[in-house]
């Protein structure tokens, strides 16, 4: 059992260390504000949209694919949700329909990738462009206003004085954790990411399970879209056209997921999205220009990835340290041995 615990710990270790270091730095720089309960709430709230999309993205990344359409699906579903409101639809009915719409776009990505064998990078790029276009068509490129209050609750409301998006993030986090770490489906995803041919020959329905990850990613993006509308109070067809795709991917990768598949955890991904929103928030408090924020975020991502256990930098340092530890005498012995071996193969 120890072994497994160590494994999960080590893959999320760097992100947690990074998170702690970041929070300590900001705490030292602005002790009165940064770690206040209010500000912590703001950080979690800020990370809700990225965190929810990152959970779906994580599922896709674990099977060694990528979903570039999450931001566009967020825009489109937000717009459709707002239009349902303007049409006077029941809020829960609208909620369900919008989630299904997100799933439908995910299904399209999944089918294109798994059954028509278009690389996911291109397939989801096409879906992204398409969804962005439909969002602009539906609104004529304008921002929709006058959305009824009940529709805005998902993003703007509070329950027990805690913003509702935080609850939604928690629910999505728990759902994804159960799916990925406790169900057969999750095990199938890791096996597909580990060796797709071996998984297929072991009886895993590779295409079906992979498609399902895209569907879930689309549905989670729709949830993010609904929250986005509530946070702004209006529905913008370009809300997801910024860095949303890359933020979702970065959160997973910061949390230890590998773009080659087979590795990644929900807790790491959650920590990854906290790191990004914490950085954003801390720099804002310190009054640093938001242009700098992007630059610093980029640097943090690079440092975090270099610090990951399996990175070439860390393994290089480890090899260097262990070779120094061996001491002079042993090194000499070893080189003798090497010489001997070389000699015997030459002879």
């Amino acid at each position: 059992m120890n072994n497994k615990k160590r494994k999960i710990w080590s893959s999320t270790l760097s992100i947690i260390v990074a998170l702690v270091v970041l929070f300590v730095i900001f705490y030292v720089l602005s002790p009165s504000v940064f770690l206040s309960l209010n500000n912590i709430t703001v950080i979690v709230l800020l990370s809700a949209i990225t965190g929810i999309m990152a959970m779906g993205e994580l599922l896709v990344i674990v099977v060694a694919e990528i979903d570039l359409s999450v931001g566009a699906i967020m825009s489109l579903t937000g717009v459709v949700f707002a239009m349902f409101s303007l049409a006077g639809m029941n809020v829960f009915f609208a909620f369900i329909l919008v989630i299904l719409l997100g799933g439908l776009f995910g299904l399209l990505s999944g089918v294109l990738t798994c059954y028509i064998k278009i690389p996911s990078f291109i397939a989801t790029l096409a879906v992204m462009v398409m969804a962005n276009g439909i969002a602009l068509l539906a609104t004529n490129g304008e921002t929709l206003m006058g959305i009824s209050n009940s529709f805005l609750q998902f993003g703007g409301g509070r329950l027990l004085n805690i913003p509702i998006p935080i609850y939604i993030l928690l629910v999505i986090f728990i759902i994804t954790t159960i799916l990925l770490h406790f169900t057969k489906f999750g095990l199938y995803l890791y096996s597909i990411g580990g060796n797709i041919e071996a998984a297929r020959l072991s009886g895993v329905n590779v295409n079906f399970n992979k498609t399902l990850t895209f569907v879930l990613s689309g549905m989670f993006s729709a949830v993010a879209g609904i929250i986005g509308v509530g946070r702004l109070g209006v529905a913008s067809p370009i809300i997801g056209s910024g860095n949303q795709n890359l933020d979702a991917i970065a959160a997973g990768v910061l949390g230890g997921a590998s773009l080659f598949g087979g590795v990644g955890s929900t807790i790491g991904t959650l920590a990854g999205s906290f790191l990004m929103s914490g950085l954003d928030n801390g720099l804002t408090i310190l009054g640093i220009s938001s242009y700098w924020e992007s630059v610093i975020l980029g640097i943090v991502i690079i440092i975090a990835l270099m610090a990951q256990e399996n990175s070439i930098l860390v393994s290089g340092i480890k090899t260097y340290l262990s070779s120094r530890k061996l001491g002079r005498e042993k090194t000499i012995n070893k080189s003798d041995e090497v010489n001997k071996v070389n000699k015997s193969t030459k002879d």
């Binding site: 095990l187 060796n195 041919e197 071996a198 998984a199 072991s202 895993v204 590998s258």
Partner: peptide, 16 residues
């Protein structure tokens, strides 16, 4: 190439 599922535990490999 077709048997071992990498980055997975022995347990996962056996029960898959």
């Amino acid at each position: 190439n077709k048997g071992v599922i990498y980055k997975n535990s022995i347990l996962n490999n056996i029960i898959i």
